[in-house]
């Protein structure tokens, strides 16, 4: 008997998946609003993407193709174990190629290859509440959302500039969704914020420990907060990828030997590999020539 027959499809029972889908529908109907849901125990500890896994389980169908990334890479322990989990429990096809995937679960990055209509990007979220940093009371942050009372978020950005001379927040950079809700884009680098704006794919966010789900339907306006005299600027890298030469993409610094050698390479491993593998054409929408 195969493993897939032992588990219910995608591990969760149908009742639970329906409950999560109801939360997802509400989240899609109110872009950026944090919908509470009855987060379940998963066979992995919190902090390992249980929120994302539950969302993925609820949206996955038998004919989906799943990709899982962690910090842009398909081959980290976390990404591999989540991918295996769904191979085992749902028997779905998996891929590392962004353009072949119908569902992509991610921690910390948005793929460089532009997403298209019909794809779903599922984010693993540790702390869904962007105001938590300055306001520990849940009752108060809820009221602030209800009243669109977001001055406090700018206090945080003010503090950044006062301390560092510029907005030093580079991860989980707060955004305003569809002109209404303040949202934490999860710990993605601010480099990826512009990709969220008017994205053709459906973006779903799951926070397991905090029991919250939120969403960006396709083509939702997502604006990064800033000041008139300190406008939002995505991170820029002053070099290209040492492996594939791509420019204008997000780079990770990697140590190459034990004598302090290091280089900067694409954080998106699939993107980098497809640019270096001739048979697969360069990813659509990006046409830098490898140097």
């Amino acid at each position: 008997m195969s493993d897939a027959a032992v588990y219910n499809f995608a591990y969760l029972d149908e009742q639970t998946k329906r409950m999560i889908r109801r939360a997802l529908l509400k989240a899609v109907a109110i872009p950026g609003y944090q919908v509470p849901f009855a987060s379940r125990e998963m066979p992995m500890p919190y902090g390992w993407g249980t929120g994302g896994v539950q969302v993925t389980a609820a949206v996955l169908g038998a004919d989906d193709t799943l990709k899982v990334i962690d910090q842009g890479a398909d081959d980290t322990t976390n990404a591999v174990s989540i991918r295996k989990f769904f191979e085992r429990t749902a028997g779905v096809a998996t891929t590392t190629h962004t353009s072949d995937a119908t569902v992509i679960q991610t921690r910390h990055r948005i793929p460089e290859t532009p997403l298209r209509e019909g794809q779903i990007l599922v984010y693993q979220v540790p702390i869904p509440e962007p105001l938590r940093f300055l306001e520990p009371r849940e009752t108060e942050t809820r009221r602030q959302h209800a009243l669109e009372d977001y001055g406090l978020m700018h206090v945080k950005l003010y503090e950044d500039i006062a301390r560092h001379g510029h907005i030093a927040t580079t991860y989980a950079y707060p955004v305003k969704v569809d002109g209404r809700y303040l949202m934490d884009p999860s710990p993605t680098p601010k480099f990826d914020n512009p990709k969220m704006d008017m994205c053709p794919a459906l973006q779903l966010f799951g926070a397991g420990r905090e029991k919250r789900i939120y969403a960006l339907p396709p083509y939702t306006r997502v604006v990064s907060l800033d000041f008139e005299d300190h406008p939002f600027e995505p991170t820029k890298f002053d070099r290209g990828c040492a492996l594939c030469g791509a420019e204008g993409i997000y780079l990770d610094e990697v140590v190459t030997d034990d004598c302090g050698g290091r280089m900067f390479v694409c954080s998106d491993t699939d993107f980098c590999e497809s640019r270096r593998t001739p048979p697969r054409a360069a990813a659509p929408g990006l046409n830098e020539v490898p140097r």
Partner: peptide, 25 residues
């Protein structure tokens, strides 16, 4: 707010009512 600078404390009301120019705040 004890964890926020004096300037941030004084500026909070202004930001709450929509001021979005750091220099002016």
């Amino acid at each position: 707010r004890m964890g926020v600078s004096a300037g941030g404390n004084v500026g909070e009301r202004l930001m709450a009512v929509g001021w979005r120019h750091y220099g002016r705040i």
